[in-house]
Design a protein around this nucleic acid. Structure first.
Lengths: 127, 127, 127, 127
DNA sequence: GTGGTCTAGACCACT
DNA sequence: GTGGTCTAGACCACA
């Protein structure tokens, strides 16, 4: 597992941890029942307070991404792929909405917008 | 001019005001040298502290969207359309990047993504 | 007499008027006993409130640059050249102090600073 | 770190704080990642409202001189020395322009002006 | 009337 | 502990 903290970005640290673990789970990098590093281990690794990692893990548990076995550790839950797909669709729409809002102001045409999407996909090495 | 405050959203009030005015300026709804409502007027209209509207206006001034004349009021600056276009392009790319990231996880094809974009444009009444 | 108002600069209008008239007097453009435009005339010319021009004139009078003859108008006082020289010397020193403070930070040498002075004199068409 | 407030000077308190900290950073007195006193500490030290120190710090952040880390404190950013040099050169020129303007009026020669510069440097302990 | 600044006290989120 | 935001009320300078 790999987590990188950026102190400057304004995003709370616990959320950075949460989001990065979430992504690794959703992308399949972390398979079901994979054992995550302990709260204390992660805290010392990232040079971060235990309170912070605790919050990240407990929110991940609450959202169903990981489960906690008393005295053993934290493990990755198996993901409901249907649910993931829905969540991702919602995320795509929200991203598109941002882009469309901006496109309205800049008076960019439908075709141009599709071209920009294609261009950005290349930049993000999509497919 | 029209500004709506949502107290629940977690976004600071001064920023909600700022963003909404910024949008109205960029979209051309508010033309250059339009006189904005006074800080105090807006504060009482929105049932908000004077300090809050002051902050919104002074940040808008600092970012070059409006100019304040002592003892007279606040006015809309003329916008550099070239600069706006660049900013909007960056915003479009960032929105697309979010969508692409999610599309990767959900394993959505190029064509599907373009269809989703078209679909979202309809939902946002983008002509 | 020539006065130009810039609304955006943050400098109070009455002070802009004051400073510009003062300069024209000190530079000799306006000779002693020259009759200035009336307060009301200047106000309409500059599209400014009468209160504003009144303040500019009364402060100029207080500082001894102009004198007011009831019912006739405002006139330029004769300037005490010795006093002017002293004032200008103080102004020069304050300008130099700003420059030196900046030079300290940028670690610019004595010679470089003199060269920059020479350079700036050329840019300002001095002599 | 050392900050002194002068209530009489007409300059806003938050700006006095801002300018003095900025100078200490630019002059190298405060190195990168130095932890500044907390907003509240500084406020009580200077016998000033928390809002005032907050404003000073947040404007310093916006201008890139310091960075604020949630729940930890405020730290000095590393400065781009090239940029600083440019800014200082502009400041030097503006200071010189003021001096030259005054020198024109007082009819002071090139040599005299250079001598005055030398004299002012001594008074400002510039080596 | 306008904007600019300041205060004292409060609540919140993050570490 | 830290910074971020907000309030209600105040005084000032400017037009």
């Amino acid at each position: 597992m790999r987590v990188i903290i950026r102190n400057s970005s304004g995003v709370p640290i616990y959320e950075q941890i949460k989001e990065q673990i979430k992504e690794e789970i959703l992308s399949g990098e972390l398979h079901a029942d994979y054992m995550l590093p302990s709260i204390r281990q992660l805290a010392t690794d990232l040079k971060v307070s235990v309170v912070t990692t605790t919050r990240a893990y407990s929110e991940l548990e609450q959202e169903g991404y990981i489960y906690n076995v008393q005295g053993k550790g934290c493990f990755v839950s198996s993901v409901d792929s249907e649910l993931v797909r829905e969540q991702m669709l919602r995320k795509i729409e929200s991203g598109f909405s941002i882009a469309i809002k901006a496109a309205k102001i800049a008076k960019i045409s439908h075709e141009e917008l599709h071209e920009l999407l294609e261009f950005t996909m290349e930049g993000n090495q999509y497919e």
